[in-house]
């Protein structure tokens, strides 16, 4: 039995090395004094200082954060509202809308990107013919990001709404709250964990996206991912490694925040479940699982 454990642990360690070796290489060579990607020539921070003097990269970082924050916020508002509307619907229309909602998640990113590009080119042409100014740029980039972000918010909010006691809102209304008050004071605090997680997922999806941005941003603006792509196509510069290292740290911090939150939430929920015995949870667990696996879905490409 013990021997068995050893074998499986060895296997897991090897996979761990496979997963982390490339990242370690990137990080180590971001401090390399020479431009070589395989020969170590001493320690330097030059690539970091160069990075922060590179205006293309700085403006790409601004664009990336701007589009990610804006699209995550808009997607959260639109998605939460939509999830509330969907959950009030009958089974059939809800099923239909949720399947359409899933399309951007299931489709290959290149298809989503290409089809949105067609939309922008097609209607852009029509608008220009009518005398409006329309070009691929920040606006189209933002629209594309909102489009692929809302589904994550909906998938994250729906289970929380399902858990919500429908009488709660009615009780608030009976006690004289306006619909807006009852949403703000009763419903939102209950579904907030789902809303917040949805927003975080949307934000990270946006930051990470390359393929859809690539097809919808036009030639004027570019995100950090697009800038990295351009760099890998042109010349080899350790600045890329410096970017990677910083991004890795950023993701690491973000992930720690998310996990600490999750652990705290779980603890709260466990306490609550102990208080109200008999409230069933399996549906919620299945759906949250679904989100975990979908998390990956569009991220790859």
């Amino acid at each position: 039995m013990k021997k068995n454990r050893f074998g499986s642990r060895l296997f897991m360690t090897l996979i761990g090395i496979f997963l982390y070796a490339p990242i370690a290489v990137l990080i180590i060579f971001s401090f390399n004094a020479s431009k070589s990607r395989s020969v170590w020539a001493g320690f330097t921070l030059d690539w970091y200082t160069q990075l922060f003097q590179n205006e293309r990269i700085l403006s790409a970082i601004t664009t990336t954060f701007l589009v990610s924050i804006l699209s995550a916020l808009i997607a959260t508002v639109v998605g939460t509202a939509a999830a509330m509307g969907f959950s009030a619907m009958k089974r059939r229309p809800r099923g239909l809308f949720l399947s359409i909602n899933n399309i951007p998640l299931i489709n290959a990113d290149i298809i989503t990107g290409v089809s949105l590009m067609l939309l922008f080119v097609f209607f852009g042409g029509a608008l220009t013919a009518l005398g409006f100014r329309f070009r691929l740029g920040f606006g189209t980039l933002l629209m594309a990001h909102i489009t692929f972000n809302v589904p994550y918010v909906i998938l994250s909010v729906m289970p929380k709404l399902r858990q919500l006691d429908p009488n709660l809102m009615e009780a608030a209304l009976d006690l004289g709250a306006t619909p807006w008050q009852s949403f703000w004071k009763v419903v939102l605090p209950e579904i907030w964990p789902g809303v917040f997680n949805g927003m975080l997922i949307a934000f990270t999806m946006s930051i990470d996206d390359f393929v859809i941005s690539y097809f919808t941003a036009g030639s004027g603006v570019s995100t950090l991912a697009m800038e990295i792509y351009a760099m890998t196509r042109k010349r080899i510069s350790p600045e890329i490694n410096a970017v990677s290292t910083l991004m890795f740290l950023f993701v690491l911090i973000l992930l720690i925040i998310i996990n600490v939150r999750q652990i705290r939430q779980e603890r709260q929920e466990r306490n609550r479940r102990q208080q109200i015995k008999g409230s069933e949870m399996p549906v919620d667990e299945i759906v949250s699982n679904e989100i975990i696996s979908l998390l990956g879905e569009s991220e790859g490409e």
């Binding site: 070796a21 990242i23 990607r37 990270t204 990470d208 950090l224 990295i228 990677s244």
Partner: peptide
Amino acid sequence: IFIMLPMWMNFLLRTYAWMSILEDTGL
């Protein structure tokens, strides 16, 4: 967490890392 962490790093960078590893004179 360890399995998800690299996944959240931009995949262009992950792919770029392999370029330097697999090169003819690479690591």
